[in-house]
Amino acid sequence: MTQRTLAVLTAGLSQPSSTRLLADRLSAAVVGRLAETGVETSVEVIDVRELAHDVTNNLLTGFPSPALERAIDSIAASDGLIAVTPIFTTSYSGLFKSFIDVIDPTALTDLPVLIAATGGTERHSLALDYAIRPLFAYLHAVVMPTAVYAASSDWGAGSAPGASGLTERVERAAGELAASVAESGRSSRVLDPFALPAGFNPAG
């Protein structure tokens, strides 16, 4: 049976967290879709809340803790990534962005990524396309066409047959990521060891 690894990055701050709940629903849907095609998937969940102090220390010192290094390595070595953040002040959370900032700029090159977010109201859903999608595009990841946003009103709704709700969006996005992950594993990703770091200025 074909083997794949799926990394799940979730940046919810509370416990329990709707962000983690959405991440779990998406990962279960992707694993299910991959199983239908004969692909066995191992899932690595990175809960950024548990690494908040390590992320801050890394930003200040430039050195990751062992736990943070393992989390970063698991994403870099994965065949696909699900990234979920709460929306604060019309954009991704500061903790989510801080974690992304400590990842090597080349680590996500050609990595299939499903982006998702949670928020209080539907009007914040546009943040997926004007903030989160450009972030991963800048890092040369392959961002799936369907992004999933879950407002407070989405939970417990949209499960009826034919309903255009959260369940439908989750399944559509999961199908896209599963197809991409099944088609090309990490062995097909070519990372340029000589790539210049983000923001490099040859003029100093």
Results as ranks from 00 to 15, higher is better:
139 L>Q: 11
116 A>W: 05
104 D>M: 01
155 W>E: 04
104 D>K: 01
82 I>K: 10
108 L>E: 05
50 E>F: 01
62 G>N: 09
50 E>W: 01
77 A>L: 13
70 R>E: 14
82 I>L: 10
75 I>C: 00
102 V>W: 03
117 A>K: 09
106 T>W: 12
144 M>D: 08
136 F>C: 02
102 V>G: 04
156 G>L: 03
93 S>H: 02
127 A>N: 06
145 P>V: 01
85 T>N: 03
55 V>L: 04
147 A>T: 02
108 L>F: 02
93 S>V: 06
128 L>S: 10
110 D>R: 09
94 G>Q: 08
130 Y>S: 04
110 D>H: 09
102 V>T: 15
27 S>E: 12
64 P>G: 00
134 P>L: 06
117 A>W: 10
116 A>K: 01
95 L>H: 11
34 L>V: 03
59 L>D: 05
92 Y>G: 09
90 T>C: 12
118 T>H: 07
112 P>Q: 03
91 S>T: 15
54 D>R: 05
121 T>Y: 13
110 D>F: 12
49 R>L: 10
19 T>N: 12
156 G>S: 04
38 G>A: 06
42 S>E: 14
82 I>D: 10
149 Y>E: 10
49 R>D: 02
155 W>Y: 15
136 F>N: 05
72 I>P: 00
42 S>H: 08
114 L>E: 03
110 D>E: 15
55 V>Y: 07
80 G>S: 05
60 L>M: 13
92 Y>V: 11
61 T>C: 06
107 A>G: 00
53 H>V: 14
130 Y>H: 13
146 T>P: 05
135 L>E: 07
50 E>A: 14
83 A>S: 14
72 I>Y: 00
86 P>L: 07
78 S>E: 03
104 D>F: 01
102 V>Q: 06
67 A>V: 10
104 D>G: 08
139 L>A: 13
80 G>P: 03
97 K>S: 05
75 I>G: 00
57 N>P: 00
133 R>S: 04
131 A>N: 15
56 T>M: 11
34 L>R: 07
64 P>F: 00
68 L>A: 03
139 L>P: 02
44 E>H: 15
133 R>H: 08
121 T>G: 14
112 P>M: 04
127 A>M: 14
117 A>S: 13
127 A>W: 07
115 I>D: 07
44 E>D: 14
80 G>Y: 10
95 L>R: 08
154 D>L: 04
23 A>L: 06
81 L>Q: 06
40 E>D: 11
103 I>R: 00
41 T>F: 03
79 D>L: 06
148 V>K: 09
125 S>E: 10
70 R>S: 14
89 T>M: 12
144 M>F: 07
146 T>F: 08
91 S>M: 12
50 E>C: 03
130 Y>N: 08
19 T>D: 13
43 V>T: 15
32 G>V: 03
119 G>C: 07
22 L>A: 05
68 L>S: 02
56 T>D: 01
61 T>I: 05
